[in-house]
Design a protein around this nucleic acid. Structure first.
Lengths: 244, 244
DNA sequence: ACGGGCTAGAATGTATCCACTTCATGATGC
DNA sequence: GCATCATGAAGTGGATACATTCTAGCCCGT
């Protein structure tokens, strides 16, 4: 279990999983860079490509069966999503998050998602409620962690989209993406009742209660993740000391 | 004056101005794509490349004396900054802002910059004040609109950087960038005393007053810009009717 | 033994070339 | 006369090939 936070563990196994992701995405894309972009994004979010892992262009090009050009453009795009970073002549690596990053992201999520909730609630139509009801039911019915994450994503983004503000929704999406990876390993045992309470507040149009619930939840989650990361870092350091 | 909002007016004149921008940036960059990225960004912000203008890769490559590859990567990066947009097989165009965009951006700016002010003020050190003092003096001393914009940018971003939060500062930078273009044509006759009042609040550490001033100012500016854009759109429509 | 410079290999940055999509123009049928 | 379809040019998307930069390992000196 402990090696989940250490990069570059099973190169071959990961490559196979990456191939699976590609196959799943190949159908729906026209341009090669879209294929690469979506596949690599998914691979990072699913933890197939771990933090600090180096992304060699040629290797990726091989896996995708394309040249390096579309790979480079896709990576450039991911850089602006914050999932990878690049230095001239040194190539791209997957970004890693430390405790400070978690604090910043969750702080911003509280700010932006809270704002979105306040804007969205008064605008909700019956059609919106119909859809949200379905998404919420889905979210509550699934049990596998990955699926819980995915359905939750859909529910909340659908709610925020009601605001009709592309930038706001885009920023929130980006921030959620950045920490989605961490949620996978730091499997939070969060009471799913929080989402029930939140949705109840949404139903009744009580924006302030909804925002309070959301903020409180995020603060608790942030504390848990930060604790997890600090422990992981401590283990890492201890490991390095032992190995000498 | 009226043609300032219409794209593609003096192609040759603009090309000359673009060349000037490139020469200014050529020194400090290592990779070609960095050169292209920074130059095109500046060109858009300075209005040399107007809204809805199409950006042909080959033409830009010509101007920069490079191949199309670095151009494409730079444009892809600008797409994620929101300054250009692309459709597969149709290429890149400079984005244009309508009244709704202005409302969204200023709304987010109030939210994020307000947050940054609240975080920054308690953290300000004497060194920070020294630098801010210098930047503020510069800002108040220049008179040319472009320079006012540039110095204001430096002052506020320096202040926000005190928070030590790269994402927050990055998001604010992006949003300011997006509307910076509009500020050029819609030359706001804003009382510069607002910045004096704001800085006075910063000096005394009165975060709430600073935020209130900032929010009020942005709301007024947003109204002015929206009015300007709507008038420009109306003129545009009238022009089109006349031309038939 | 240990640290610093140097060389070969690898990986990135860029240029040139080809393939395919899109769009405008004009021909053709109704 | 009008709509529709073919056809060409223009332009983007992608592949291959070359230039440039970084890096890891080796040699050498101390």
């Amino acid at each position: 279990m402990r090696d989940t936070v250490r990069p570059r563990e099973t190169k071959d196994g990961n490559r196979a999983r990456l191939t699976a992701i590609i196959e799943a995405a190949r159908e729906e894309n026209v341009t090669a860079q879209e294929l690469v972009l979506q596949s690599v994004r998914r691979a990072i979010l699913d933890g197939v490509l771990g933090p600090a892992e180096r992304l060699r262009q040629e290797e990726l090009a091989d896996v995708f069966g394309t040249s390096r050009i579309p790979v480079r453009e896709a990576l450039r795009a991911l850089e602006y999503e914050g999932l990878v970073k690049s230095e001239p002549h040194r190539g791209f690596t997957v970004t890693s998050l430390d405790a400070d990053d978690i604090e910043e992201v969750y702080d911003l999520r509280i700010l932006l998602e809270g704002h979105a909730v306040r804007l969205a609630l008064p605008l909700l139509t019956d059609d919106d409620f119909d859809e949200l009801e379905t998404l919420f039911a889905e979210m509550q019915s699934v049990t596998e962690p990955d699926q819980q994450l995915a359905t939750r994503e859909r529910f909340y983004l659908r709610l925020y989209s009601v605001t009709g503000r592309p930038r706001l929704v885009g920023l929130i999406t980006r921030l959620r993406q950045e920490v989605a990876r961490v949620l996978r390993w730091a499997t939070i045992t969060h009471s799913s009742s929080i989402h029930e309470q939140f949705y109840e507040a949404v139903r009744t149009g009580d924006a302030e209660r909804a925002v309070t619930l959301l903020a409180g939840h995020y603060r608790r989650v942030a504390v848990l993740i930060r604790r997890y990361i600090k422990e992981a870092e401590a283990r890492e350091r201890a490991d390095r000391r032992l190995r000498r």
